[in-house]
Design a protein around this nucleic acid. Structure first.
Lengths: 136, 136
DNA sequence: CTGTATCCTTAGGGATACTG
DNA sequence: CAGTATCCCTAAGGATACAG
């Protein structure tokens, strides 16, 4: 995961989330409403606790996610996407759109596809805003 | 690079190009006009020949790129993006847009940014078409 | 020029036990 | 519950030689 990131936007992206797990964690935060350590652990993809901790630390260090204390549940820690992390929605939606087109086993909510295929920006903004509102 | 790809579009994408080199090769094909084995090798990122061969083989197997004999130069082999590979342009542009916004060292051609920020679809279609025309 | 074939190295990831 | 701390392991990647 050490790329010389300077100058090339693709390399930069790879340097931030170009590993085996980061995009899956971001997906969970962005589309599946997962916010707790344990929720990532048991998300069904079988990430090990040591790796999860490392990925979360890296994503936080790079400004993609942030930690906060969950006011409702004592000392429970709640993760959320930062503005920068939320900005990856376009990358995520583009991947989803592409996969939906080429992988027969993939199904993506129709509203996402519509947002991408037709009148991109306004529908994406809508999804984006709703994600933003759902942040703690 | 072995992910259980079924069902999730993000996992599927990661399974296809979620390694250290694939997106860089795709970038070279898509935006830098590189088409020959040697051009990828000396692209300045220092990929080793064994790894390059493996990546190219994988990308071809997954339908992202295709090989053809270069009519002009005897047995020289020319690589190009398939329709499926070209379809990744939205992912690439989204990454470039995002990096341009958050990485101070990244600079992306203004036409790309414009295509993404304002009137997405038509300008993207234009870029897309020109890439398509430039295929062998 | 476009690759194979080898061999080697290592970082990333997996398993598990443990802690406040 | 939310992580550390270890230890281990292997697949991916790097170096180099060579072949058609």
């Amino acid at each position: 995961m050490k790329y010389k990131a300077y100058g090339c936007p693709i390399r930069y992206g790879l340097g931030v989330f170009g590993d085996k797990w980061s995009l899956l964690i971001i997906r969970d935060l962005m589309f599946k409403g997962r916010r707790y350590y344990g929720e990532f652990l048991t998300a069904g993809e079988n990430i090990s606790t040591s790796v999860l901790a490392a990925r979360l630390e890296n994503l936080e260090a790079r400004g993609i996610i942030s930690k906060a204390n969950d006011a409702d549940h004592g000392k429970r820690i709640i993760y959320s996407l930062t503005e920068k992390g939320l900005g990856l929605i376009h990358v995520m939606l583009a991947m989803m759109d592409w996969s939906e087109k080429y992988d027969e086993h993939t199904e993506v909510p129709k509203s996402f596809i519509d947002a991408l295929r037709d009148n991109r920006s306004d529908l994406i903004d809508e999804i984006y805003s709703s994600l933003k509102r759902s942040r703690p």
